[in-house]
Amino acid sequence: MSPVDEPPRAHPNAATASADDTALLARVLSCYKEHCRYLTGAQVRTADSQDRYPLQCVGQFTVPTSCYFTPAASDDYHCTVVESQICASQITNYLIASAVRDRLAAPFDLWTLDDIWQRQRHAFLAPELHYTYRAPIRSRTFHGEAAITHVAYKRGRRAPFLLLNITHDFSDDRGGVFHGEKKLAITDPPGVPTTP
């Protein structure tokens, strides 16, 4: 099997996750319009396993107003699919940035934050999305979790890419529950293994 098709190997000096970092969060959210910066705080943790996966991030979200709907007079708010996807992207991006900065697990322990900032806008692609609302999220403030469960380099038509399996779970204190699964492809990843 070619190294391109294998999961990344853990770096021996991988560090543990640091606490909530507002500076990193602000940098992650800087590419979003100000009224669409929904993730207000987050903390990352790793699994007690050899490869440290799954990587998990627990976050808090606030959606003060819809990003595209005019508020109704009754203000009967519910989190839409678009806003859910924005929240999912923001917590995922924060999780990846934290994994890079704190060298949590391969392959992110060998990347730099500049590698992330150069790719965040154009190289993070989601070829597969599956979202399920078990009950509408109606609170403007709610909780969410993202987990990277598996990573592997894959062969693309033009070049190798990194494929991540990610789950998302959101809930509020009014019984709202949302579950999502997606595959995230990072094109032009740094440190791609070479075929012997």
Rank of each mutant, 00 (worst) to 15 (best):
Pro190Lys: 03
Leu29Arg: 07
Ser18Trp: 06
Tyr133Thr: 11
Asp188Ala: 15
Thr167Ala: 04
Ile186Arg: 05
Ala135Phe: 10
Thr46Trp: 01
Arg119Cys: 12
Gly59Met: 09
Asp75Leu: 15
Gly41Asp: 08
Thr22Ala: 12
Pro190Asn: 01
Ala185His: 09
Gln90Val: 03
His122Val: 10
Pro54Cys: 07
Asp21Cys: 10
Arg121Val: 11
Asp169Trp: 00
Thr195Leu: 05
Cys79Gly: 02
Cys67Val: 07
Thr65Leu: 05
Pro7Met: 09
Gln118Phe: 07
Ala135Tyr: 11
Asp21Met: 01
Phe108Pro: 08
Val4Glu: 07
Ser18His: 13
Ser89Tyr: 02
Pro7Ala: 14
Pro71Thr: 11
Asp169Ile: 00
Asp115Cys: 04
Asn93Tyr: 09
His143Arg: 09
Gly175Lys: 00
Ile116Leu: 14
Thr112Trp: 00
Cys31Met: 11
Ala185Arg: 04
Gln56His: 05
Arg27Val: 07
Val28Ala: 09
Ala105Asn: 06
Ile137His: 00
Pro8Asn: 12
Ala73Val: 07
Ser139Leu: 06
Val28Trp: 06
Tyr32Trp: 14
Asp75Met: 15
Tyr153Ser: 06
Gly156Trp: 08
Phe124Asn: 01
Val100Glu: 04
Arg52Lys: 12
Ala105Val: 12
Ser18Lys: 14
Thr62Gly: 01
Leu184Thr: 03
Asp172Met: 12
Leu113Arg: 04
Gln56Pro: 08
Glu145His: 04
Val58Cys: 04
Pro189Met: 09
Asp48Asn: 14
Ala73Gly: 11
Thr167Arg: 02
Tyr131Arg: 03
Thr70Asn: 05
Leu164Thr: 02
Thr132Glu: 12
Cys79Arg: 05
Val192Phe: 03
Leu110Phe: 05
Ser49Glu: 08
Pro8Leu: 10
Ala152Ser: 15
His122Met: 11
Asp5Trp: 10
Leu164Met: 15
Ala88Lys: 05
Cys87Thr: 02
Lys33Val: 04
Arg158Gly: 06
Cys57Arg: 07
Val81Ile: 09
Ile148Ser: 02
Asn165Ala: 13
Asp20Ile: 03
Arg103Tyr: 03
Gln120Tyr: 08
Ala73Tyr: 08
Arg140Gly: 08
Thr194Asn: 10
Val81Glu: 12
Asn93Phe: 12
Arg9Gly: 14
Thr167Val: 11
Glu181Cys: 00
Ser139Tyr: 00
Pro136Val: 06
Thr195Cys: 05
His11Asn: 08
Ile116Met: 13
Lys33Thr: 07
Val151Asp: 02
Leu104Met: 14
Ala14Glu: 09
His35Met: 10
Leu95Gln: 01
Arg52Asn: 09
Thr167Tyr: 02
Pro8Gly: 13
